[in-house]
C-alpha cells in the first residue's frame, strides 16, 4: 500500500545540513554513536601528538595498577599495563594506528570490490567470469595465511598491513555488489534510462550504484570489526604492527597472559573496539534509512510510542 497517497502538502525542505542534523537527533542511538565516533576520530588525529610521552613513560610502581584509583594521575584512571604505562593514555594514542589500518583497509576493499563488482555485473560474460574466478581464488586461500606470507616478504608496516587486509576482504564486496547489480539492471527504471539513450556510465553510477550502495555500506561497517580483529591477530603473530607502536588489537593480545590477575589490561582496549564497531553499526543503520527516500519519513516524523 502506498504510504502517502493522500498527497498531504510537503513544506519546502530546510537547509540540507540542518535537515541531516534533525534526522540524526530523531534517532538517539545514532546521535550518541556519532558523538562517540567524533571522539574516536579526534583521538586518532591528535592523540599521539598530545599524549605520546605520557603513554610510553614507564612507572614501575604502577605495574598492573588497578583501575578507578582516582588518587593517581588521570592517565591511570583505567589502570596501568604490565610495564606500568597508563592504559587510558595508551588507548587514546593507539586509536590512530587502529583507525588508520581499519578504515584504510575497509575503504580500499570497499572501493576496489565495488568497482570490480559493478564491472562484473554490467559487462560481458567473459570479463565477469575472469573477475569472479579471481575472487574465488582469494576466498579459497586462507586469508591469514596469505597475510602471513605477504607480510613475511614485505616489511610489516601500516601501509602493507592495509594492503594485505584489503585484498582479503575484496571478495565480500565484489560478490555482493555483482549479485545486486544483476538484479537491479533488470529493473524497469534502468530500461527506461536505456530507452532515453543514457550511457553505460550514467546507468551504472546514477541508477544502479545508489540502489546497491546502502547494502555495501552496511557490510563495510560490520567488516570494520573483522578487520580490527584480523589486524590484532597478525600483530599477535608478530607480523603486524610491531611494538613500541600500539593498536587496540595489540593491547588486547599483550594483556592476554595477565587475564586472570589483571583483567583490565585486555578489557579496556577490547571495549574500545566493541564500542567503535557498535557505533558504526548504529550509524550505518540510521544512514540506510536516511538515504532512502521511501524510508526517510521514519526519521522526519515524530515517533509514536
Amino acid at each position: 500500500m502506498a504510504v502517502a497517497e493522500t498527497g498531504a502538502p510537503i513544506p519546502e525542505p530546510p537547509h540540507p545540513a540542518l535537515q541531516i542534523l534533525r534526522m540524526l537527533w530523531r534517532d538517539k542511538f545514532a546521535f550518541a554513536a556519532t558523538l562517540f565516533l567524533l571522539v574516536v576520530i579526534f583521538c586518532a588525529i591528535f592523540g599521539p601528538m598530545l599524549f605520546e610521552d605520557v603513554a610510553t613513560r614507564q612507572n614501575l610502581r604502577g605495574r598492573n595498577a588497578a583501575p578507578f584509583d582516582f588518587s593517581k594521575d588521570w592517565s591511570f584512571w583505567l589502570g596501568g599495563d604490565a610495564l606500568g604505562r597508563p592504559l587510558l593514555a595508551r588507548i587514546i594514542v593507539a586509536a590512530q594506528n587502529t583507525i588508520t589500518v581499519a578504515a584504510g583497509a575497509v575503504a580500499c576493499s570497499l572501493a576496489i570490490g565495488t568497482a570490480l563488482g559493478l564491472v562484473a555485473g554490467y559487462t560481458s560474460r567473459g570479463l565477469s567470469q575472469v573477475i569472479m574466478r579471481l575472487a574465488d581464488v582469494i576466498m579459497s586461500f586462507p586469508s591469514l595465511l596469505l597475510a602471513v606470507i605477504v607480510l613475511y616478504m614485505l616489511e610489516p608496516s601500516v601501509g602493507n598491513l592495509i594492503i594485505v587486509l584489503a585484498i582479503t576482504r575484496i571478495p565480500v564486496y565484489l560478490r555482493t555488489s555483482r549479485a545486486e547489480v544483476l538484479e537491479v539492471r533488470e529493473r524497469m527504471f534502468v530500461q527506461a534510462a536505456q530507452v532515453m539513450g543514457a550511457s553505460t556510465g550514467r546507468i551504472v553510477f546514477r541508477h544502479i550504484l545508489p540502489v546497491v550502495f546502502p547494502t555495501l555500506i552496511t557490510i563495510a561497517t560490520l567488516d570494520f570489526a573483522v578487520v580490527m580483529l584480523a589486524e590484532s591477530s597478525l600483530s599477535f603473530l608478530g607480523i603486524g604492527i610491531q611494538p613500541p607502536e600500539i593498536t587496540w588489537g595489540l593491547m588486547v593480545s599483550q594483556g592476554r597472559p595477565y587475564l586472570t590477575s589483571a583483567w583490565w589490561l585486555s578489557f579496556w582496549p577490547g571495549l574500545a573496539i566493541i564500542l567503535t564497531t557498535l557505533s558504526l553499526n548504529l550509524l550505518s543503520n540510521w544512514m540506510r534509512t536516511a538515504l532512502d527516500p521511501v524510508q526517510r519519513w521514519r526519521l522526519e516524523t515524530r515517533r509514536e510510542s
Partner: peptide, 30 residues
Amino acid sequence: EIQMVFQDPSQSLNPRMTVFEIVAEAFAIH
C-alpha cells in the same frame, strides 16, 4: 524521437530520484 511509457510506473521511475531529476535526466543525457 521514440520514447516508451512502461506498464508499472512504480517500477519504471527510479525511487531514489526526485521528480525533477527524473524528468530533467532527459536533458542531462541529450
